[in-house]
Amino acid sequence: MTRLFHSLRLDPAHTQREIDEELAFHLDQLEQELVESGTPPDRAAALARRRFGDPHRIARQCRAIVFREQIMTRRIHVAVTVLLALALVAAIGVAWSMGMEARRSRDIAMMQAVLARESQMRADQALAEARVQAEAARAAQDKLRASNGGPSEAQPSR
């Protein structure tokens, strides 16, 4: 008997036809009942419909119930796909920004190396200039002593 339970096949067109037939049967029975109890036949159909409710709306509700799992599954599939795509974009973004960070660190290191070399060069230059000045000062000193008649310093200053 469980086979009969699954007689609601998930073939949309077939299911829709069956729902329509089922509702139409009920409406016809209602109409017949009204006619049998004295309602004019031309009024019975409209009256039956009023008692039943809008068959299109009801058929739509029934279809939604039958296909609810399919609809939910499709929505889940779409949601999972979107999430995976977002995760992929996020991963690429993170990798790119990590690459940028690495490049930035490398650039900073290079700049620091350049700056270090420059200050080294400046230090060397200052040292050279200082030596030059020291030599000039000594030469001036010697010249002064020589003009004052004293002996020149033969040895380098201690």
């Binding site: 339970f5 729902i19 089922e22 009920h26 068959p55 039958v66």
Partner: peptide, 18 residues
Amino acid sequence: EGSLYPALYRLQKRGDLA
């Protein structure tokens, strides 16, 4: 009367009816 049908379909889907 039409409101019976969504109820019937729901009950069937839930497994209470065949």
